[in-house]
Design a protein around this nucleic acid. Sequence first.
DNA 1: AGTTGGATGGTCT
DNA 2: GACCATCCAACTG
Length: 216
Amino acid sequence: MARALLGAIVVRHGPGNAVRAGRIVEVEAYIGVADRACHARFGPTARNKVMFGPPGHAYVYRVYGMYDCLNIVTEPVGAPAAVLVRAIEPLVGLEAMRQARVAVAASRHRWPPERIARERARIAALPAERLANGPGLVGAVLGLDPSWSGTDLCDPGSPLQLRSGPADAPEPVLAVGPRVGVDYAGDPWRRLPWRFAIAGHPAVSRPRPPTSEATR
DNA sequence: AGTTGGATGGTCT
DNA sequence: GACCATCCAACTG
């Protein structure tokens, strides 16, 4: 499922008539209570319960007290698994995305007005491929927080939707590597090559995973 | 190019 | 009370 989700489109409707959309270019797979890197390893809790629910829903959690990360639940009820969206290529609503980045920075830090102004200028100068090239940044540009957990991504009326990419899109060459930031999980979990990206895409986060010859 | 430390608070033991 | 699916600035060389 992680491989299949590369190239899919995330669409955010609102607030108001605003629309933001991006193409998924990097993901990681987390599956089951046995996966020592997966939040489901504790069994169902208040935070992770939607992972145990039906597929096609969002699981959004906050890390380090600051960043909200978007996951897509992928397995049937009772089988906890999700794909972390690590990076998107912004396609629509870039100005709203920049604004959302500033709003997140201003709300998470205790910063004076001049520091916020400096951050606004820094974000305004970023190229599009640097707006959401990391999991915390994906949540920021889409204006998500943990209250979005449980959102049905397949409901056409939902403010957050997942859509197929263009049917005629070429099969991408993949870059594959171990998941980021899960050394605590121990072997073999921290080594498993469950991070997938579109090879060479400028919006892929650092460190860049090694390119694999295989396609999907 | 690569490394280090600070920000910041929910979550789980 | 320790840990954490992160990000960035500031440093080293």
